[in-house]
């Protein structure tokens, strides 16, 4: 309860700051619509020559692109800004000020800010989800919607854990801001069905940077391609990675010695 109140205060203050940069939202919206147009244009050229791409039909791939936008937006809005903050705090030694506060350090660092204008990608993602679900026809029922919600939650847990592990690495290596790029490169690849990649790369996208659980499986769930097994796997993987990342963070925190002190 106390944490919920705290979350409200933290988010309220950061939204107040963002309100000063309202035009930002429209620039980002235009940028993300243009990006969407590029992806869809490219896909429709490819689908001009074939009706399915490794068993994915065109409307199903649109669902995939929609999930990509949702996940990208959620990450850039809630997760990435906070994690980048921690990275620079470790480098500058200011993490000390966070650690001495009488609240859970993981909570405070993970939910410090929210960059609301990054919601542009989420808006685009929601619109595209609705549109592509329409294109799918009447394959989408309550079951699909529910399993979509579950797999999305699982995916969010995996994204968060991935970033938490990245941040925890800074306790030992200090500078890892570039590793972030590897995560984004994997995200870029997951804009398309991962079945199109060679086996080794598919393995990397499933087990090393698990975008398969973040993007592919939720898209499969919504388009009715997933069955019970991926659904259970998604929940298990989400819970497991959350637990493992939290444990890793605690170990890392014990190793933190403060940079400047």
């Amino acid at each position: 309860m106390r944490y919920l109140k705290l979350l409200g205060v933290l988010y309220r203050t950061s939204i107040q700051t963002d309100m000063e940069y309202r035009v930002d939202f429209f620039t980002r919206l235009v940028a993300s619509l243009l990006g969407l147009l590029t992806t869809i244009g490219g896909l429709s050229i490819a689908y001009g020559y074939t009706s399915t791409l490794k068993d994915w039909t065109y409307p199903q791939v649109l669902v995939l692109v929609a999930v990509y936008y949702l996940m990208d937006g959620l990450t850039e809005m809630f997760i990435a800004p906070n994690m980048r903050n921690v990275m620079s705090q470790v480098r500058e030694g200011t993490l000390d000020f966070v650690l001495i506060k009488p609240v859970n350090a993981q909570f405070l660092t993970s939910f410090r800010t929210v960059v609301i204008w990054r919601a542009a990608n989420i808006v685009v993602g929601i619109l595209l989800t609705l549109y592509s679900v329409g294109r799918l026809g009447n394959h989408v029922g309550l079951v699909q919607a529910l399993s979509f919600a579950v797999t999305m939650a699982g995916g969010c847990a995996v994204v968060y854990s991935l970033w938490l592990v990245l941040v925890t690495l800074t306790f030992w290596f200090v500078r890892v801001d570039n590793i972030e790029q590897i995560v984004w490169q994997a995200f870029e690849a997951a804009r398309y069905p991962i079945e199109i990649y060679p086996a080794w790369l598919r393995g990397g996208l499933t087990y090393i940077v698990p975008v398969a659980f973040i993007i592919t499986i939720p898209a499969q769930a919504l388009s009715g391609r997933a069955h019970q097994l991926p659904l259970i796997v998604s929940v298990v993987i989400g819970g497991f990675s959350l637990a493992a990342a939290t444990l890793f963070w605690r170990v890392g925190l014990k190793n933190y010695t403060g940079a400047s002190a």
């Binding site: 020559y49 074939t50 791409l53 490794k54 079945e195 199109i196």
Partner: peptide, 14 residues
């Protein structure tokens, strides 16, 4: 490489 993967898949489908 993504474009290559997409088009390889398209030509495999064809």
């Amino acid at each position: 490489l993504i474009s290559l993967a997409v088009w390889t898949a398209v030509s495999a489908a064809r």
